[in-house]
Computed example of a mutant assay.
Amino acid sequence: MSDVNQTLDARGLFCPEPVMLLHNIIRDVAIGDVVEVLATDPSTVRDFTRFCGFLGHELVLSEEVDGDYRFLIRKGEEEEE
């Protein structure tokens, strides 16, 4: 299991808030760091998968237990804006 460098608790928030918050956090962590995201919105499964695909991050883990979603996302080498 990957070590978690930062946790984002987005439980109770709905699209697009969790992705916006993740975007802000991942911008500030080092390449290779892992961000854990906790969420309750089912659309986060799709949103975080696309987020990682578009921006070059690695979706290390995506799991759901009783309506609670947990993601581990490793920051990739994204191009600067």
Rank of each mutant, 00 (worst) to 15 (best):
D3A: 15
D28M: 14
E17H: 09
M20C: 10
R70K: 12
E79A: 08
D33M: 06
L21S: 15
G76D: 11
D47I: 00
S2H: 11
K75C: 05
S43Q: 08
L55Y: 10
L59S: 05
S2Q: 08
L55C: 03
E79I: 13
D3R: 12
G56T: 03
R27K: 13
G12I: 10
D66C: 14
D28I: 10
S62T: 15
K75Q: 06
R50A: 05
Y69L: 10
D68Q: 14
N5L: 08
I26A: 01
I26M: 12
E36H: 04
I31G: 07
V34G: 01
V37E: 03
F14M: 13
V29A: 00
A39Y: 03
V35Y: 00
V35T: 05
V34H: 02
A39M: 01
I31R: 09
S2W: 12
N24L: 15
E78I: 09
A30S: 09
I31S: 08
R11F: 06
G12H: 06
A10M: 01
F48M: 02
M20H: 10
R70S: 12
H23L: 15
C52D: 01
T40Q: 05
E63C: 06
Y69C: 02
C52L: 01
E63D: 11
G53N: 11
R70F: 08
A39F: 11
L55P: 00
T49E: 06
G32M: 11
S43W: 04
L22H: 02
I31H: 11
F54M: 09
E17S: 11
E79Q: 14
P16K: 05
K75L: 00
G56V: 01
R50G: 06
L55A: 11
R74I: 09
K75G: 05
V4N: 08
E64K: 14
D68T: 12
V60W: 04
E64A: 14
G32K: 07
I73S: 00
C52R: 00
R27L: 14
F54C: 14
D28G: 08
H23D: 13
M1E: 10
V60H: 12
R46W: 01
P42N: 11
F48I: 00
I73M: 00
L55V: 04
F54D: 12
V60E: 14
P42W: 03
G56K: 02
S43K: 02
D28Y: 02
D33W: 03
L72T: 07
F54W: 07
T44S: 05
L22G: 06
F51Q: 03
A30Q: 08
T44K: 02
V4T: 13
P18L: 02
L21A: 15
T7A: 07
I26C: 02
F48V: 01
V19M: 15
C15N: 15
T44R: 00
E36Y: 01
E78K: 14
V4G: 12
E77S: 13
R11A: 03
V19Q: 01
V37M: 03
N5Q: 14
G32Y: 10
D3Y: 12
F71D: 04
R46E: 03
Y69H: 11
D28K: 15
V37W: 00
P42I: 09
E63R: 14
S43H: 07
T7N: 05
T49I: 04
D9E: 02
E79Y: 13
D33R: 02
L38P: 05
F54N: 13
E81C: 08
L59Q: 01
G56L: 02
L21H: 10
R70M: 10
D47C: 04
